[in-house]
């Protein structure tokens, strides 16, 4: 099954699923950061231009420092995301899913020089398009990945429904299926929701139409403890 997920297991043997972010959202995040840095340079350069050559020197020093340390500072102190990444919901993590520290962050951002070659991140783009987890060269060397903070938008709560339980206990797959249905069905067309619910006769005692949907909702409320 093709997916964009990296599975990592913690020392406690818990499997984590990290959702890797590809070139398109990362390019947009970079654009936002570029605009922010441009704004900062302007804000620094306008007052300092009053000081002639000395002012120009100070501006150059500021440009140097910001260009190199803007991503590092935000990634380490800002919980893994520059403002652009935060706007796109991205976060930089170590390969094992832990928060990124000074060493890896410095490495991946210093290697922007290599990714930038020969023109505007062409190498980084090729590397991202060719690697499974969309890593640019800096990510490969520092063993970091860029992931989504949250995979999908929060789902609605199923509407109220009469009490319903099955006779036999539900397997874990069946519980997952019922909960997934209750989360998704309110956004489906009513016809499709009924058609879907009728595909689970073992959970609804062969109910049909709207009744099948409501029985599944009732079951979901029972499973999540939302029952009155």
């Amino acid at each position: 099954m093709l997916d964009t997920v990296r599975e990592v297991s913690t020392p406690e043997l818990i499997a984590l699923r990290l959702h890797c972010a590809g070139p398109v959202p990362r390019a947009l995040a970079w654009l936002i950061d570029l605009a922010i840095r441009g704004g900062i340079y302007l804000a620094i350069a306008i007052p300092l231009s009053a000081f002639g050559k000395g002012g120009t020197g100070l501006v150059l020093v500021a440009v140097f420092l910001i260009e190199w340390f803007y991503p590092v500072l935000f990634e380490v102190l800002g919980r893994g995301a520059t403002p652009g990444k935060r706007a796109l919901g991205l976060v930089v993590l170590n390969g094992d899913g832990s928060p990124v520290g000074w060493g890896p962050s410095l490495t991946r951002n210093l290697l922007r020089v290599a990714d930038f070659l020969p023109f505007l991140y062409a190498l980084g783009l090729i590397s991202m398009l060719m690697s499974r987890e969309f890593r640019r060269l800096g990510d490969i060397v520092a063993d970091t990945i860029v992931t989504y903070r949250r995979s999908a938008s929060p789902l609605p709560i199923a509407p109220e429904a009469p009490h319903w339980r099955t006779k036999a206990p539900l397997s874990r797959t069946a519980q997952r299926a019922v909960l997934a249905f209750a989360e998704r069905a309110p956004r489906l067309s009513p016809e499709r929701a009924e058609e879907l619910a009728e595909q689970a006769p073992m959970l609804t005692d062969d109910a049909l139409g709207q009744q099948a949907v409501e029985r599944l909702y009732g079951l979901a409320h029972h499973l999540t403890g939302r029952e009155r």
């Binding site: 997916d3 959702h19 972010a21 590809g22 919901g89 989504y148 995979s151 789902l155 998704r184």
Partner: peptide
């Protein structure tokens, strides 16, 4: 699985 638009592009 439910994905947002960006994740779909990555897929």
């Amino acid at each position: 699985r439910p994905r947002n638009g960006w994740e779909a592009i990555d897929l």
